[in-house]
């Protein structure tokens, strides 16, 4: 007995909203990065769920590419966080408010 697709969608919505709440309430750049990752994985759950829904593997393949993109994004994000720490001595995103310092 397969799990109905609606449940996958609700799980994905929950994960997305947890990520959104993290981005809206936290100031730590690392927490930002983790929250963005949660939101990306919520999208992945939707891809895989609809792949099963239609019996077509396009969604699963696309989810793989999203994972590769997420890994690249985290690599860039951690680089930015390192520079943020070096210049401000902190990873608080509200510190870096100006275009130039």
């Amino acid at each position: 007995m397969a799990v109905p697709t609606e449940y996958y969608l609700v799980l994905s919505a929950g994960l997305f909203c947890i990520g959104l709440a993290g981005i809206l309430t936290r100031k730590n750049a690392l927490m930002f990065l983790m929250s963005v990752e949660l939101m990306l994985n919520a999208a992945n759950i939707n891809f895989v769920a609809f792949s099963l829904q239609w019996g077509n593997l396009t969604g699963q393949t696309f989810a793989l590419f999203t994972m590769a993109l997420a890994a690249a994004e985290v690599a860039v994000g951690i680089g930015i966080i390192l520079v943020l720490y070096r210049n401000f001595g902190d990873v608080d995103v509200t510190d870096a408010a100006g275009m130039r310092w």
Partner: peptide
Amino acid sequence: LPAVAAVGLFVVMAAVFLGAPVGDAAGF
């Protein structure tokens, strides 16, 4: 307050998804 807004968004999304006529999965 933003976190409460996110929870509200989840409630709206869950209501929409559970009410949507998705149908049975074709499966692999």
